[in-house]
Nucleic acid binder design. Structure first.
Length: 209
DNA sequence: AACAACCTCAACCGCATCAGA
DNA sequence: GTCTGATGCGGTTGAGGTTGT
């Protein structure tokens, strides 16, 4: 049920008066979804603030964007995460840490939010259990897994930096295109779509390394 | 049946970054 | 160079559902 909260907003810019606005928060209704989808179909998924206004939604732009990205966007895959996907998430998380959007980028149809939730509710527990069973010295995950990918150990960090650079290149050229100064295309690098998921030996080796 | 504890996931929040003026 | 608004990201929250007692 959508809750309406009266939000007292103190504008960030200097000397702004305090205004009172009724902003819709909480769960989205089917009607809101429909309006949002209509406006996005007409104007495209950008200028979220304008979209919110055009759709006549008492929502902030951020909220609209999130709803679109996590729920309304076409080709969203919902429901069970397959074993293959789970395996991939585990591997990518080892490599990238909590870079959910990057991980999601390698899982077509999955959103960063979904993967983050899945990790927090399922996989982190699994890993904890494994660690307890295995015991002993801290695992690679313990070194690598940390918020925002900070202090990622050694060579993995270098790869991570390359990936970030590549992501930036991709967004600026929009279609991916050629590499500038690095030797591989990250899309190809992480494209497992044609690969037998049970036969990812190379990646195991890479991760071991 | 009633309640508590736990789990899941949609949504919010705060911050960082980027682009344009 | 600075300011401002837009966007994106990761962490966190909380409502609603499920399970256990």
């Amino acid at each position: 049920m959508p809750m309406k909260r009266e939000v007292e907003r103190r504008e960030t810019s200097k000397n702004m008066i305090t205004t009172k606005k009724v902003v819709n928060k909480g769960a989205w209704t089917a009607e809101e979804d429909r309006k949002l989808a209509e406006v996005i179909a007409a104007h495209g998924p950008k200028r979220w603030k304008t979209i919110a206004v055009k759709a006549g939604l008492n929502r902030c732009g951020k909220s609209c964007r999130l709803r679109w990205m996590n729920y309304l966007r076409p080709n969203i895959k919902r429901g069970n995460i397959s074993d293959q996907e789970e395996d991939l998430i585990l591997r990518l998380h080892k490599l990238l840490g909590n870079r959910w959007s990057l991980i999601a980028g390698r899982l077509p149809g999955r959103t960063d939010n979904e993967i983050k939730n899945y990790w927090n509710s399922h996989l982190s527990k699994k890993i904890n259990q494994k660690e307890k069973q295995g015991g002993g010295s801290p695992s690679r995950e313990a070194i690598i897994n940390n918020p925002k990918g900070e202090r990622i150990a050694g060579d993995v960090e270098k790869v991570n930096v390359h990936i970030v650079n590549e992501e930036k290149n991709n967004t600026s050229t929009s279609s991916g295109g050629e590499d500038s100064d690095i030797g591989f295309n990250v899309d190809e690098f992480f494209d497992f779509s044609n690969e037998d998921p049970l036969n990812l030996e190379w990646m195991n080796k890479f991760l071991e390394f």
